[in-house]
Simulated scan of single mutants.
Amino acid sequence: MRKHPIILGLCLLLLVGLFFLLLTALGGGLFGKRSLVWGEHVGVVTVEGIIRNSREITRQLDDFGKDNSVKAIVVRIDSPGGGVTPAQEIHDAILSVKKKKKVVASMGAIAASGGYLIACAADRIVASPGTMTGSISAIMHFANVEELLKKIGLKSSVVKSGRFKDIGSPTRPMTEDEKALIQSLVDDTYDQFLDVVAKDRRISKDDLRKIADGRLFTGRQARKLGLVDELGDLSYAVRLAGTLSGIKDEPDAVYPAKKKSTFWELILQQAVTTLAAEMQKVEGRPEGLNYLYQQ
């Protein structure tokens, strides 16, 4: 009996649709950044710019940790550091995923302060000879606009429940007790940084203190000091991660799939990005306690 051409066409169309759905599932999304490749891969997570939030990076690390086709992870760092807490959270997320898979840190132009803290969690650290790294230190910034307010005839009045409630106020000088309190916060945060580097890099805290005063090192200098393991670029780091994880052939590097956004979400994202960039120009420095190298 002859098959109806319409039914045959619908069946072929259904098969084609199922085929493309399979490709999408295996490849991580046709419109994502992740490549449509099969086999054993090395996942690449990128940390760029000032570290203000850890959510997206830790999510990507967790996703690669659960992906059976990803045998190792490279964390590409091009950052001067940033907030203490997000840097620590990314560091801890790397330690967690390292229980399942090998992790290699790859340093770009700069991987300093909080950027270096993140790298310490990896199994191996790879830097280019000219990478700027180090800056093992903690810092807080406070502005004082008291004289400016006097010139324009403005005064500030504060009602508070405790003497330290408006600590760091830009409308008055900081008292000696307030300076001592802030210094204790910075010192404790700095000590936490030393603990991490000493443990991860197997360097005594006494030896570490001699070089952990905020100074920068080139990648080559850092290697001599034991802060970095090897010299190489991102491609070298990917190959190293593949070797450590037992991948025999040249490993394919895959990237996290980008989240699909609606038209209005894209408009909102662009507006927020533009606003944040303008605010950063005005503010100059990030607020709060930071592991951050600044020129």
Rank of each mutant, 00 (worst) to 15 (best):
K102F: 14
V84Q: 10
I247P: 00
S161H: 11
R239M: 07
L181F: 15
G242D: 04
D206E: 15
M107L: 15
A93G: 09
I167V: 14
N53E: 15
K33A: 11
L8V: 13
L36P: 00
V16T: 11
Q280A: 13
R34S: 14
L289F: 05
L22D: 07
T262I: 03
F19A: 11
V74A: 08
I6G: 01
K33Q: 12
K179C: 06
W264R: 08
I152R: 11
A277Q: 09
T218Y: 02
I118Q: 09
G17Q: 05
D233M: 05
L231G: 04
Q60H: 15
D63S: 15
S113P: 07
V272K: 05
S113I: 10
P173A: 08
L21R: 06
Q280D: 12
A277R: 11
L208W: 07
S79L: 08
A277F: 12
S245A: 15
G242V: 05
V254Y: 01
E265N: 07
I6E: 12
G28S: 03
I139K: 14
F142G: 02
L289C: 00
C120R: 04
S96C: 06
A119V: 11
I118F: 10
V74K: 03
P286Y: 03
V47A: 04
L234R: 01
D187M: 06
K101N: 08
R202T: 11
D252H: 13
I50R: 06
D229C: 04
I125D: 06
T133H: 07
